[in-house]
Amino acid sequence: MFTSPEQFAAATKTLFELQMNTFNTLASKAVQGVQQVVNLNVQTARNSVENTLAAGKEISQASDPQAAMAAASQQARAGAGANAAVQYGSDLKTIIDDINREFHTAADAHMAEAKNALSALIYDVTQNVKPGSENAVQIVKAAIDNAFLGYEQVTKATRAAVKQVEEQIAKASDMVNQQQGPGTPPNQ
């Protein structure tokens, strides 16, 4: 058993720090994902404006109305807007998949670290048990188990928050794709 209240406090502090590290890591991954989506949206909007300006310039520099119509027709046949929408959807899916993979990898690593720390604590508790202290050991084990349950709850809550962010990103992507017609560049 712990030989002093300081040892128990240190063990509790270690578990709390593990919880906070996991929460910070997972929240950071979620924020990075949102930042990537924002960057994708800005780049897509920039590309859309540049393509529209280039097409407008080409049409305006046509020597006659027939050449202007030919240039406009060429732009429509090229399907630049549809290609941009497909590329946007592909890039967004890649970002979401990366967020999900990094999130689960980080969560699993932190969970394994917490389990190892708890195993060491339980080992320490059971190695130094004096006869007649079995009830005290059970109380300490219950406290450690409760701390680990709290750790798992933080991880689950953070996973749920990341899932919600992913769902909102997917909904936003669907809305963008639904608002676009064939040959129309994405609106951002």
Rank of each mutant, 00 (worst) to 15 (best):
Q32L: 09
T52A: 13
F23K: 12
A55K: 13
L53Y: 08
L18P: 00
A54V: 03
E58S: 14
Q61G: 05
V42S: 02
I59E: 06
Q61L: 11
A62E: 03
A30T: 15
V37F: 12
V38L: 14
Q43H: 11
N41Y: 05
K29I: 13
Q61M: 04
K57W: 00
E58N: 14
N41S: 07
K57Q: 06
S60T: 11
Q43C: 06
G33C: 03
F23T: 08
I59L: 05
K57I: 04
L53N: 05
A27H: 13
L18T: 00
A62S: 14
N41L: 11
G56I: 02
E17G: 01
Q35P: 02
A27K: 10
K29V: 13
Q43P: 03
K13Q: 07
L40G: 12
M20C: 06
N51H: 15
V31A: 10
A55R: 13
V37N: 05
A27G: 06
L15R: 02
V31T: 10
A62M: 04
L40C: 12
E17H: 03
N41W: 06
A30L: 08
T25W: 07
Q19V: 01
F16E: 12
T44K: 11
Q43D: 15
Q43S: 15
V42A: 08
T25N: 13
K29N: 14
E58Y: 09
